[in-house]
C-alpha cells in the first residue's frame, strides 16, 4: 500500500509496470523525487560557487549549516507526523515557550545540562498536550495547533513581556556554538545522527510501517490492529520533544531569549518536509527526501544571502517553492492520466 503511494509519484512509471518494492529497476530509482532534488542541490551548489569565491571555504560552509540545522531537526519528526496525516503548527511557539522556560531556570541558577533537560521537557509536555487534545476529543490537528500556537507563545509573552533573558552560562554555549571535530559543529553532527535514526525508524521498523498505514487509511489501520490514537499521540509528543531540542540549540546559539524567538518557523519546517516529497495529505514520503530538501533550502537561502537578498524577499521564494512543489506533480499526474486515457481510447 505504502509503496503504491510512493510509486505513484509523477516521476515514476505506471504502477502496474513496477515491482512492489523499491529495489527494482535502476531507471525507476533514477526517476524518483529524491533524484530530482539532488539535481537541484547540485545546481544550487554550482551557482553558489559562481556567485562567491568564499562559498567553498570549509568554515563558510560550516557557518551556512547553522541557519537551517535547528529547523531541519524539527523537520525529521514533522515528516513522520505529516505522513501520518497530521500536522503541528505550534512548533515555533513551542520553541519560544521552551526557551523562556530555560531562561527562567537560568535566573534560578540551573546549570547547562539542567537547562537542556528543562528545554526538552517543556517541549515534550507541549507536544503531549497537543496530541492529547487532538486524540482525546477527535479534533483536526490544524485547529488545535493554531490554538496552542497562540497559547504557547502567549505564555512566553506573559512571562517575559518585552523583556529579554540573557547571560546564559558559558558552558551552555556548546550546544549551539561548539565544534566537535574541525569544522563539524555539534548541532550539525546531532542532525546527521538523528537523520540516520529517523531513516531507520521510518523505513526499517514496524513502527515506520504503521506510520505509513495510518497515513494511507486510518480506519483500515485501526481494523488491522494498530492503536492509531496512541501512535498519533506519540508522534505529537515526539515533535514537541524535537521542538524542545531545537529550542536548546537555538537559545544556546544566539545566547538570549525573547518571546518572539523563532517566529514563523513552522512555515519553513513544513516547507522543508513538503519539498522533500512528503505528501501533505499523508501516506507518502521519505526521510532521504527531507534530508536532501533541507540542504536544498539551506543552499538556496545561503546563496541569496551571498547576493544580499533581504529575508522578506526570500520568503516570496519559499512561498512560491511550496506551491510549485505541490502543484507541479498534481498537474504532471493529470497530464499523464490524460495522455494515458487518450492512448487507451485509441486502441
Amino acid at each position: 500500500m505504502m509503496n503504491e503511494e510512493v510509486l505513484k509519484h509523477p516521476m515514476t512509471k505506471d504502477i502496474k509496470d513496477l515491482p512492489d518494492n523499491l529495489n527494482g529497476d535502476w531507471r525507476n530509482k533514477l526517476m524518483r523525487w529524491e533524484t530530482l532534488l539532488m539535481v537541484f542541490v547540485a545546481i544550487a551548489f554550482f551557482t553558489n560557487t559562481q556567485i562567491s569565491p568564499y562559498f567553498l571555504d570549509p568554515w563558510s560552509l560550516s557557518d551556512a549549516t547553522f541557519n537551517f540545522t535547528e529547523k531541519a531537526i524539527i523537520a525529521l519528526p514533522m515528516a513522520l507526523l505529516i505522513i501520518a496525516r497530521d500536522i503541528d503548527l505550534s512548533v515555533a511557539s513551542t520553541i519560544a515557550l521552551a526557551s523562556v522556560a530555560m531562561g527562567f531556570a537560568n535566573t534560578m541558577g540551573a546549570g547547562p545540562i539542567e537547562l537542556a533537560l528543562i528545554g526538552m521537557a517543556v517541549g515534550t509536555v507541549a507536544g503531549f498536550i497537543n496530541g492529547w487534545i487532538i486524540t482525546r476529543f477527535d479534533i483536526p490537528a490544524i485547529v488545535v495547533t493554531i490554538g496552542t500556537m497562540s497559547l504557547y507563545r502567549g505564555i512566553a509573552y506573559i512571562v517575559l513581556g518585552d523583556d529579554v533573558y540573557r547571560s546564559y552560562p558559558s558552558d551552555f554555549a556548546f550546544f549551539g556554538q561548539g565544534y566537535v571535530w574541525g569544522v563539524l559543529s555539534f548541532e550539525f553532527l546531532l542532525f546527521l545522527c538523528l537523520a540516520v535514526v529517523f531513516g531507520i525508524l521510518l523505513h526499517k521498523t514496524t513502527f515506520g510501517r504503521r506510520v505509513y498505514a495510518i497515513g494511507n487509511n486510518p480506519t483500515a489501520a485501526l481494523f488491522s490492529g494498530i492503536n492509531v490514537k496512541r501512535h498519533r499521540l506519540f508522534l505529537f509528543t515526539l515533535v514537541g520533544l524535537f521542538a524542545g531540542i531545537a529550542a536548546v540549540l537555538l537559545t544556546s546559539r544566539i545566547g538570549s531569549t525573547r518571546p518572539s524567538i523563532a517566529m514563523g518557523w513552522e512555515l519553513e519546517v513544513i516547507t522543508m518536509v513538503v519539498l522533500g516529497g512528503v505528501n501533505i495529505l499523508g501516506g507518502a514520503g521519505s526521510i532521504v527526501g527531507v534530508f536532501i530538501a533541507v540542504f536544498l533550502m539551506g543552499l538556496v537561502t545561503f546563496g541569496m544571502g551571498l547576493m544580499n537578498v533581504p529575508g522578506i524577499v526570500m520568503s516570496i521564494f519559499t512561498g512560491c517553492l511550496l506551491i510549485l512543489v505541490i502543484g507541479t506533480p498534481i498537474i504532471w499526474r493529470r497530464f499523464l492520466n490524460a495522455r494515458k486515457m487518450r492512448s487507451n481510447s485509441g486502441e
Partner: peptide
C-alpha cells in the same frame, strides 16, 4: 497587561474547539 491577550485567545480557541467537537 496586554501581553496576556495572545495566551487568552489561544486558550479560548482550544476550549472552543473542544466544545465544538461535542
Amino acid at each position: 497587561s496586554p501581553f496576556w491577550q495572545l495566551a487568552i485567545s489561544g486558550l479560548v480557541i482550544v476550549l472552543a474547539v473542544i466544545i465544538n467537537s461535542r
